[in-house]
Amino acid sequence: MDASPSPAAAPGPSGRQPAPVPVPVPGAHAPAFPPTPVPASRLRRLASPVASMAAVLAAFGYVGAVDPNQPGHYPVCPLFRLTGLYCPGCGGLRSAHAVAHGDIVAALGSNAPAVVGYGIFAVVWVVWMVRASRGLPLRIRLTPVHWWAIGAVLLTFTIVRNLPFGSVLAP
């Protein structure tokens, strides 16, 4: 065996030894290179939208089985109890009950914005499923203008449904 230093350990032009190259040690905590991410399986990507839909279907199933038109099953709206005014959510359970039984006209009569919300949820859920199956994230960006517009529509609906000429919108 030759006892001379290897060319890698030879001093550089400045006369200093180069820094030692780290050698991976088995069982070390930090790998030399981060592992490449493994793409999630299709089943894993679809788990969140499927679980969300299962929760929604369970809720609609419960509301469809337990009639909110019968007193004593659900609590009364606190705003209605205190003031006698309908909030934008009043009639939402009756609307969900009607949708669960396929009566869209009665659902619209109980709470029209809720029915619109059910439809928006259905469309967003389908887009979510398609994007998740393709491995793409769901990105919905609502700006403050969108939130203010939604609030204005709900406020207008609430005011109109509590006026005498808007009683058709009351649940």
Results as ranks from 00 to 15, higher is better:
Phe165Gln: 13
Met129Ala: 12
Pro18Phe: 11
Ala8Gly: 12
Leu57Arg: 04
Val130Gln: 08
Tyr62Arg: 10
Trp125Ser: 08
Pro88Gln: 06
Pro7Glu: 12
Pro171Asn: 09
Gly109Glu: 03
Trp147Gly: 01
Thr143Asn: 05
Ala170Phe: 02
Val63Phe: 11
Ala96Ile: 15
Ala106Asp: 10
Ala47Glu: 07
Phe60Asn: 03
Ile159Tyr: 05
Pro35Ala: 15
His101Gly: 02
Leu163Asp: 03
Ala51Thr: 08
Val99Pro: 01
Pro26His: 14
Pro20Gly: 12
Gly89Gln: 02
Gly151Lys: 00
Asp103Asn: 15
Leu46His: 09
Arg161Leu: 07
Pro68Ala: 08
Met53Phe: 15
Pro71His: 04
Leu43Gly: 15
Val56His: 03
Ala30Gln: 13
Arg42Cys: 14
Trp147Ala: 07
Phe80His: 15
Val115Ala: 04
Gly61Tyr: 00
Phe60Cys: 09
Arg161Gly: 02
Pro39Ile: 10
Gly102Phe: 14
Gly92Asp: 03
Trp148Val: 10
Leu154Asn: 01
Pro5Phe: 09
Ile140Leu: 15
Tyr62Trp: 11
Ala65Ile: 01
Pro5Asp: 05
Met53Gln: 13
Ala58Asn: 00
Trp128Tyr: 14
Arg45Pro: 11
Val99Glu: 04
Pro26Gln: 06
Val38Thr: 13
Phe121Arg: 01
Asn162Glu: 06
Arg45Asp: 10
Gly89Ala: 13
Gly92Tyr: 11
Gly117Lys: 11
Gly27Ser: 02
Ser14Asn: 15
Ala54Tyr: 03
Arg81Pro: 00
Ala30Ile: 12
Ala132Met: 07
Val50Ser: 08
Gly15Leu: 03
Gly61Ser: 04
Arg141Lys: 09
Val63Pro: 04
Val50Gln: 01
Tyr118Lys: 00
Arg42Pro: 06
Val23Asp: 07
Leu46Thr: 05
Leu57Asn: 02
Ala19Arg: 10
Gly135Cys: 10
Gly91Met: 04
Pro24Asp: 11
Ala51Asp: 01
His29Cys: 12
Gly166Trp: 02
Arg81Asn: 13
Val126Thr: 10
Trp148Leu: 12
Ala30Phe: 07
His29Phe: 10
Asn111Met: 06
Leu93Asp: 07
Pro26Phe: 13
Leu163Ile: 11
Leu155Pro: 02
Ile159Gly: 01
Ala122Pro: 00
Asp2His: 03
